[in-house]
């Protein structure tokens, strides 16, 4: 019973921490981008302010929409929260790790995307359809690339359970690390850029119909619904960064609940995510938005790299 309660408490803490950290990561990326572009930029806490304002605003529901439009923000946010429960951040294994493995996580992302795309189509506007169509097309290459990239580590660790993967990679000697992990990391990094709607795939900052993808899908959302969707998409970014950080560099990961290792875990996590966030900002600054039909070529790189990672792992000296 105590174990059961502690499972819930630890999970609740994990979710709350992720929720609190989420807007901050977004703020850091925006601030870094601003500095790189010689702007002063808003404070890194701006995303919190934006969200709290949106929470209090009125929601406009299109008269043409059905109940799909109204449940979408909740389903999308809930999926992200559920994934946040399954992804190891500062300690592994997470209490609920037996509930779902990496395949589950990827399909939960797919579920969120499925509803988001339906929400885009529901209002009956051209923009929504445009966004949904582009999102699903891009996802059709990104999703397999992601799956292959994470399978490379899964096969290394002999399990698809994310916590077990991270645990194994952090406790065993360096010999378990294989050069194919570099390819997988590169693949997953491109996937991260694409999945979280960053430049050069999508531009989170504009509403230009020629380029927008994610923003087009959620164009009809406002008020609290928009706040939930924004939070969900920021959370997705944090989840991807945690995946990148912890699957390929599980340094400092807490593997027990001793206070010291937890503190080290928190510090390592913050450091790794901050570095990755800055790298994302750098990539965003250094690249211009690609034309939509050039995007698949970039995504194919991710797909081919991830596939090669898995093949190389399976055939070369393992």
């Amino acid at each position: 019973m105590i174990e059961f309660a502690s499972t819930f408490i630890v999970s609740a803490i994990q979710i709350l921490l992720m929720l609190l950290a989420t807007p901050l990561v977004c703020g850091i990326i925006r601030k870094t981008k601003a500095r790189l572009q010689n702007r002063r930029g808003a404070t890194i806490f701006q995303p919190y302010l934006d969200l709290s304002k949106l929470m209090r605003k009125e929601v406009i529901i299109p008269s043409t929409s059905s109940w799909i439009f109204r449940i979408t923000p909740y389903v999308v946010l809930a999926s992200m929260l559920l994934i946040a429960l399954l992804v190891p951040t500062i300690f592994a294994p997470v209490p609920f790790h037996w509930m779902g493995d990496i395949i589950t996580i990827i399909y939960l992302f797919a579920a969120a995307r499925f509803f988001l795309a339906l929400g885009g189509l529901d209002a009956g506007s051209a923009f929504g359809g445009l966004g949904s169509s582009r999102e699903m097309s891009i996802a059709s290459i990104v999703e397999p690339a992601m799956m292959l990239a994470v399978f490379t580590t899964a096969v290394t660790a002999g399990s698809t359970d994310l916590s077990i993967i991270v645990n194994r990679l952090s406790t065993t000697q360096a010999s378990i690390i294989h050069p194919s992990h570099v390819l997988a990391f590169a693949g997953l990094f491109i996937v991260t850029i694409a999945e979280t709607g960053r430049l050069p795939v999508d531009n989170p900052g504009t509403h230009l119909e020629l380029t927008m993808i994610h923003e087009a899908m959620i164009l009809e959302y406002s008020g609290r619904y928009l706040a939930f969707l924004e939070l969900a998409s920021q959370m997705k970014l944090l989840i991807f960064l945690s995946l990148l950080a912890n699957m390929f560099a599980p340094v400092g990961m807490a593997i027990d609940t001793a206070p010291l290792s937890l503190i080290v875990g928190v510090a390592a996590f913050i450091l790794k995510v901050a570095i990755l966030a800055i790298v994302v900002a750098l990539v965003e600054t250094a690249n211009a938005k690609l034309r939509l039909f050039r995007v698949p070529e970039l995504l194919m790189v991710a797909f081919v790299l991830s596939l090669l990672a898995l093949i190389l792992y399976s055939i070369i000296g393992s």
Binding site: L298, V301, L308
Partner: peptide
């Protein structure tokens, strides 16, 4: 690891 990274850069050139 460096060799794998070199392979990645080669792929990026192709892309």
């Amino acid at each position: 690891i460096l060799a794998a990274t070199i392979l990645v850069t080669t792929f990026l050139i192709v892309s």
